[in-house]
Amino acid sequence: MAQTPIGTLGDSEFDRDTAVVRREPGVYDAELSAGWTIMNAVNGGYLLAVIGRALADALPHPDPFTVSAHYFTPSTPGPAVVRTEAVRSGRTLSSGQASLLQRDAEGNEVERIRVLASYGDLDALSEDVRTTAKPPAIPPQEHCFGTSDGPAPEIPGSNAITERLDLRLDPATVGWAVGAPSGKGEMRAWFGLADGRDADPLSLLLAVDALPPTSFELGLKGWTPTVELTCHVRSRPAPGPLRVSVVTRNLAGGFLEEDAEVWDSADRLVAQSRQLARAPRQ
């Protein structure tokens, strides 16, 4: 169930939990929160937002336009460091790379994620839009299913992230939760943060990776770890809930892709992503 709306842009649990502190130029300290874990691993979209915040400080442009991440090892709650490097700065775009690292049990520094990103100013973009894309057909929120509706699905490990999201899943994509998956690799939902904070470009990095994996609707259970994720942020989202659609068209060789679209309350396509993930081992 959603919490009483108390979060605002810049002052919310999401902002506090993705905060970074500049230790020296290009080096940022972070504390990965256990509140954003799923199946005992820190969510990949949340991690992108942490890295994205560091790059926004390190680069001369404020907004992520494209972020490509390779996930090497699972991240755990606790201290982390983000090391950034500016690669190129132009008039409209700047590019940089970043790595998120943590210490293992022996005290050795381990690289968890490596990112290459381009940043710009979303407010400076042209208003010319020519598209054949259409928002996903999702029933009204009151006809969709939240985490408090019906029996809790069997998902092993920590699912703390669900308490920080206001997800309203399309009934056509929740068969997995009652043991009757559709067999289609589709997941659709209304998306928001549980404390009512409106979306911004950094939270879009979370939104593309926040829904249950499409593998659940394919009848597969278990962790679906991300190998690579690329997100394109197309516009600054309007206030209000987002609609997220995720589709898998091909599972082969133990891997699947997930294509996501995020639409805002003004019916604009504000983010797109594709990720390659390892299918759950059965």
Rank of each mutant, 00 (worst) to 15 (best):
G196Y: 04
P25I: 00
A30M: 09
P79R: 12
V233G: 06
S68F: 02
K134Y: 06
T92P: 10
A124Y: 10
L220V: 10
S245W: 06
E24T: 14
R234L: 12
R114W: 06
D57P: 08
L9Q: 06
R188C: 05
S158R: 05
R274D: 07
I51H: 11
G222T: 01
L206Q: 03
A260M: 06
G179H: 07
L276Y: 04
T224Y: 14
E186R: 14
A41G: 12
V178T: 11
P74I: 00
R22L: 09
P181Q: 01
G183K: 02
D149E: 11
R236A: 15
L93P: 05
L122R: 00
L169W: 03
K221R: 15
G150N: 10
M187H: 07
H232T: 01
G44W: 01
Q3W: 13
D11W: 09
I6M: 15
E127I: 07
R103T: 11
K184G: 02
A124G: 13
S235C: 03
R112Q: 13
A137C: 04
R197Y: 01
S148T: 03
D128Q: 10
S75K: 10
A180E: 15
P136C: 09
M187V: 10
W176K: 09
D11Q: 14
S126T: 15
S203A: 09
L211V: 04
P171K: 07
D149V: 01
L205C: 07
Q282R: 13
L205Y: 02
S118R: 10
C144Y: 13
V262P: 00
V233H: 09
R164W: 09
D121T: 04
S75Q: 09
E142K: 05
R88A: 06
R53V: 05
W36K: 02
T132C: 10
V50H: 01
Y71P: 12
P201K: 04
Q97M: 13
A177W: 04
P181W: 06
A80C: 00
R278H: 11
S265D: 08
T73N: 14
V178Q: 02
P151Q: 05
E31Q: 14
D57C: 15
P156L: 11
A271N: 12
I51K: 08
V208F: 06
D29Y: 05
T248G: 15
Q275T: 03
N43P: 01
T84K: 06
A252T: 05
K221N: 11
V110Y: 02
V67K: 08
Y46C: 00
R243N: 03
T147Q: 12
L269N: 00
F191Y: 12
